[in-house]
Amino acid sequence: MALYLLRRLMQSGFVLVAMSLLVFLGVYAVGDPIEILISPDADQIEKERAIRALGLDLPLWQQYLVFVGKALQGDLGRSFVFNEPAIQLILQRMPATLELAFGSMFLSILIGLPLGLYAGLRPNRALSKGIMAGSILGFSLPTFWVGLMLIMVFAVQLGWLPSTGRGDTALLFGIPWSFLTLDGLSHILLPAINLSLFKISLVIRLTRAGVRETMLMDYVKFARAKGLSPFRVTFVHVFKNIMIPVVTVVGLELGGTIAFSVVTESVFAWPGMGKLIIDSINVLDRPVIVAYLMMIVLMFIIINLAVDILYTVLDPRVRLEAKA
């Protein structure tokens, strides 16, 4: 296990290096931030001073080495726009995104698992067919449209829930969180539902497929032949077996949600990382883009590792070994 972790750590290092190269090149190719950052009226001397101040006068490979050198000391650069450390900008907005992502994840499991379980156990009921049809809708409706509809119905017409912002927050570990206050919860509900719709559908379909496959297994019939209650057969024998694919997909989805909930955050004016990255791309704020993507890579590495470790808990046949 220790050897495995060590090996994984080294692999992760390589991934980070490769990713930093790609990101750096990619951002360089997108466009020249000087055109956007400096007012067109500025004279040549002013322009050159700005270029030198931002370190953009060096050749690309030197810019990269400077970036790597600083990154190793924990400095991912300063934002061109805010003139603040990029990492600090991102960390400030991270809690908002995290609570939104985990909120939607929580909803998708809370709603998706029971529905999928029902649809898998009673595949011929009308309700099951309704659930499956609904999950296709959840898959195919575009997020931004669903978000707008949610605002239209629940915020504008019914007036039940607020449509923008985080609402009141409370401090925990010195970080403001919305889910700790009632007002904050009412603010997070709509965007979380919006974000979870796709994932609910995913969990429903995965769970149903898993249940239907597992129910046919000999060990389920054997469990029934032992005289176990249907409850125990379902929630111990079947459930533990279907959790493996569900955990995999939910884990990957969690990463995706944290990194790329841009659309939902824009629609609900949720002050998270997604909004920050979109704004940064618009003004070509290179350090923020690079720092953001590097952090996302790191996050995916951590989530994948956590999923792998969860496997060993769920499936005793899985052993984490140093062998590739």
Partner: peptide, 21 residues
Amino acid sequence: LRGNRIAMIFQDPMMTLNPVL
């Protein structure tokens, strides 16, 4: 009655025990 007064043994021992329990 099942598993109590009437028990059953299946054909394939590789498949009759739940792999994750």
